[in-house]
Amino acid sequence: MTTLIAILLDGAIYASWLFLVAAGLTIIYGVMRVLNMAHGSFYAIGAYAAAATVGWFFSGEHGNPYLSYLLLVGCALLAGVILGVVIEQGLLRFLMGRDEILMVIVTYALLLILEDATKLIWGVDPYFAYQPYRLLGISDIGDILRFANYDLALIAVAVFIGLAAWFVLNRTNKGRLLRAVIHDREIAIAMGVNVNAMFAATFVIGAVLGALAGALTAPAISVTPGIGVEVIVLAFAVVVVGGLGSIGGAAAGAVLVGLSRSFAVHIAPEIELFVIYGVMFLVLAFRPQGLFGQTLARRI
């Protein structure tokens, strides 16, 4: 029983984290058809910005410790907006409409550049921002299991972001326009939608989500070089399992991968290494478009 509760809670926490990491990636792909390898760098830079700022905040008397949560989110916003605007306006704008694979390679080059840029700014020493993680205390579940409330709060954050994205896409005018672009870019242009502005906004939102995922993870980890590269392929897997470009798909993919991994860790830790790719392989073998992907009409 304890194990079952642990599996479900661990799965839910991990799934929320996966969703946070994958959401920005899937939005950018859905609208712009750019599979953004640099998403990992957004994550890393968000984490560094947050850890450095929160570390400074707690190094002296800088006010109510609960303000640190605002700092986390603020850093993510700032880092995401700067990165998003600079990269979209400075580079991607000139490359839109190029081959999808070429764009993967362009963002891969970006990843290489940002990886060293991160090192240039923050060095290689680890950064810690553990205070926000501890501040919320722990919850006892049964007599031996304890969970950090911060992790449980992460579930709420992920649900909130998922709902917000759904609301914006389905209940606002801008969101409807965005869906029109996702559905058929050419018709949307013909109908007078300013696609370039849509792209710019989407990329910034995606970058902010990536940075936010990093910033919210920072308190639980030691922020070191290389953390960005590790999340890319994970985010890819989640997004592909769910169906590329679909927020609902990313959520479903995250839950599926999160729960499978949690099961593996508790029941058969030996196979943990394979779980994510195994799930991805099985889902694609039976549903080539992913769980929520649309089947495209064949070209004639």
């Binding site: 299991l145 993870t217 590790e230 860790v265 508790h266 830790p269």
Partner: peptide
């Protein structure tokens, strides 16, 4: 025996399993 991937960073499930 827990075998997380190198550089995984998130050990929530492993910590639960170890606690249990």
């Amino acid at each position: 025996e827990q075998w997380p991937k190198l550089l995984q960073g998130q050990y929530g499930a492993e910590i639960s399993a170890l606690s249990v």
